[in-house]
Write a protein that binds this DNA or RNA. Structure first.
Length: 623
RNA sequence: GGGCCCGUAGCCUAGCUUGGAUAAGGCGACAGCCUUCUAAGCUGUAGAUCGUGGGUUCAAAUCCCUCCGGGCCCA
């Protein structure tokens, strides 16, 4: 990668230097695309300077204008009410872009190769992936793509709780309700989630003795009872495999599976506990109602129990040990083995207890930064984990709880799934009660709707080709919907709305990509000997400006872990391109103009394609 | 009892980190544009006391405090 492929930064650095400040100091004063007030961008620094320097607004603005006038990147400056409005020198912007351009344009070396571990998906291995899990996975996968494109080395893991009550529930179904371990014609994760799990939970109501059976099974799992362990391992492995197939379909891949049972088997908690005691991060309480408990004192003064007086560890204990492993803050590591080859050809590794299968494996843990995509309801526990990691590492390790809110169902959709009417704006999903929407089912339904549309629009394409388009589109739509808004906001899902296809979103972006490809296809011309074209149209300028700003949008999105910034860009850029399309014919233009426009379309496609890929949108050439 | 998240047109959202000009999109409604590189597109109209009240500031959707509504967590 180029030493600095962030085109925006190159120019802003130049401006900052001329103003005698740093780039970081300049940024708060900058607003781009201020067309309606005049200029391509505006600087508000004079409004501050006038006060701090005790001079008039006009004088302060005039001073800034003088300092910037000689920049090769600026062609014109006007002052309005203290705002310094600037127009770019598009010829120099064009030269800058064409010199930094490559297939991965937008990416930078911002991360400087820092290793980051991202944990996402982490679905209990007893059911199919539903749309709530999909939000988690979509966010995690998009973040990993964003960080990869900004120069980070990313390790993606998913956590599998193979020791919990939900897994035990399914074992109860097989062992005591006589349900078969699989059923023909139904995907295994669906079978367990939609049939076994629900049946077992219904049975608990009529036969409470089954609950005792479950706790026996949980004990057997904990004690690594041979028969039960084998049963669990078999079921977990198969269900997990089925879940992964769903995720692969969505374009989501992993590097490593972490099993909860292995964290227990390797006694990571014991190591962690000893270290925490040794370092004095947790203390034995000698008085009061928490007497006999090992407690961690949070920054806000609260005393959080880590080990109860009866010696049992709270749930967060395991999370703490796991986090310490991630950041290499304690002795010990798992053994690993190659498990399966994913549909993208990449090996998926898993932790293992088996010595004989351990091979040379990549280094997975000991990262300075870990991003943990975990439901917002776990914020409190995660805060404790974060504080402990902060303290243990002396502030060196960055444990990030990337919190997101649930996907809930609209009243109409909930009602269709059998929820009795209540006056609420949305309804939480429940695996136990069967109130959820599986990702596989949704994508299939969406695909059918899109397929009809695709066929009617592409009479010349084969059924197979139409289906491929429909598949890509439906996946793109769902992935985009999962990341386009603030992750902390509850996402209310409505089936009818989802199947209506009129939302702009991913369809709009895909349509724009197809349009770009169409132009390049119809032109059927190699793009070469491209030079700057004088008298750019407003739409050409807009596109050039978007292209120019793109690397910095990606970089600041990576800095803030903000996917919304990318989706907003993709959407606005599409809009700018469609305006360009309306008024600037590419095919009909000639000579220099034609070459320039072909280059502009091609470059725009690179930009929109790269933005789309971060968002999980599969770029199409036609639709 | 303590803590966290959300509140922006009828609906869904962006903007809040880093205060700056006339609050930006989409859906829905209404009115237009296909003999022209894909109309899954483009253009226009109507629609917002930015939850409430106060504070800071030359300037607040944005920062601080109060309260209200919705969701969640800890004990």
């Amino acid at each position: 990668m180029e030493e600095n492929s962030n085109t925006t930064k190159i120019v802003m650095d130049d401006l900052a230097k001329r103003l005698g400040i740093t780039l970081e100091e300049l940024k708060p004063f900058l607003t781009h695309k201020t067309y309606r007030y005049g200029g391509d961008f505006s600087i508000t620094k004079a409004l501050k300077d006038a006060k701090s320097e005790g001079i008039s607004l006009d004088a302060a603005a005039e001073k800034i204008k003088k300092q910037l006038e000689s920049s090769p990147f600026i062609s014109r400056i006007e002052i309005t009410k203290g705002y310094v409005n600037c127009w770019y020198n598009y010829k120099n912007l064009f030269n800058l872009i064409i010199n930094t351009l490559n297939e991965s344009y937008g990416g930078t070396d911002y991360g400087k190769g820092e290793r980051v571990m991202i944990e996402h998906t982490s679905v209990n291995p007893n059911k199919a992936i539903h749309i709530g899990h999909l939000r988690n996975a979509a966010i995690g996968d998009s973040l990993s793509k964003l960080l990869k494109s900004t120069g980070y080395e990313v390790i993606v893991t998913t956590y599998t709780d193979d020791t919990g009550a939900q897994v035990a529930d399914n074992i109860v179904g097989i062992k005591f309700l006589g349900m078969p371990a699989e059923e023909k014609g139904i995907k295994l994760d669906h079978y367990f989630g939609d049939k076994v799990y629900i049946k077992v939970n219904e049975s608990y109501k009529t036969d409470p003795s089954l609950l005792e059976k479950r706790s026996d099974i949980l004990k057997a799992i904990e004690n690594r009872d041979k028969e039960i362990s084998k049963l669990v391992e078999g079921m977990v492995g198969k269900v997990l495999r089925a879940q992964l197939e769903t995720m692969w379909r969505f374009g989501v891949f992993y590097d490593l599976i972490n099993y909860e049972s292995h964290i227990l088997a390797y006694k990571f908690w014991d190591n962690a506990f000893n270290l925490l005691k040794e370092k004095g991060e947790i203390k034995l309480e000698n008085e009061g109602e928490k007497k006999g408990c090992w407690i961690f004192q949070k920054a806000d003064g609260e005393k959080k129990i880590i080990v109860r007086s009866d010696g049992t560890v709270v749930y967060a204990g395991k999370d703490i040990a796991y986090a310490m492993w991630k950041h290499g803050l304690m002795e010990g590591d798992f053994k690993y083995r190659r498990w399966i080859t994913q549909s993208n050809g990449k090996t998926l590794w898993t932790t293992t207890l088996d010595d004989s299968e351990t091979e040379n494996h990549p280094k997975f843990n000991d990262v300075d930064r870990s991003i943990n995509i975990i439901d917002i309801t776990q914020s409190y526990e995660q805060e404790v984990v974060k504080e402990i990691i902060d303290k243990l590492s002396g502030g060196k390790a960055h444990y990030i709880h990337y919190e997101y809110a649930v996907v809930a169902l609209s009243p109409e959709t909930a009602k269709k799934l059998g929820v009795k009417e209540e006056d609420k704006d949305f309804f939480r999903m429940s695996g136990r009660k069967g109130i959820y929407i599986n990702a596989d089912d949704l994508i299939d339904r969406l695909k059918q709707v899109i397929l009809q549309e695709t066929k009617s629009r592409n009479k010349d394409l084969s059924e197979e080709e139409c289906e491929k388009i429909a598949e890509s589109l439906s996946i793109s739509i769902l992935r985009y919907e999962m990341v386009r808004t603030d992750p902390k906001k509850i996402l209310v899902f409505d089936m009818d709305e989802a199947l209506r296809l009129e939302s702009k979103g991913a369809i709009y972006i895909e349509y724009t990509l197809s349009r770009m490809s169409g132009i390049l296809r119809n032109a059927a011309e190699k793009i070469e000997d491209v030079g700057y074209k004088d008298d750019l149209t407003d739409q050409e300028k807009k596109l050039l400006l978007d292209i120019f700003l793109f690397p910095d949008i990606v970089e600041s999105a990576a800095r803030d872990l903000n996917l919304t910034a990318i989706s907003n860009f993709a959407s606005e850029f599409s809009s700018d391109f469609n305006e360009f399309y309306r008024d600037n014919s590419v095919i009909k233009s000639e000579g220099r103009e034609r070459k320039f426009r072909l280059w502009l379309v091609n470059t725009s496609r690179t930009v929109l394609k790269n933005a789309s890929e971060i968002l999980g949108i599969i770029p199409l050439d036609r639709m």
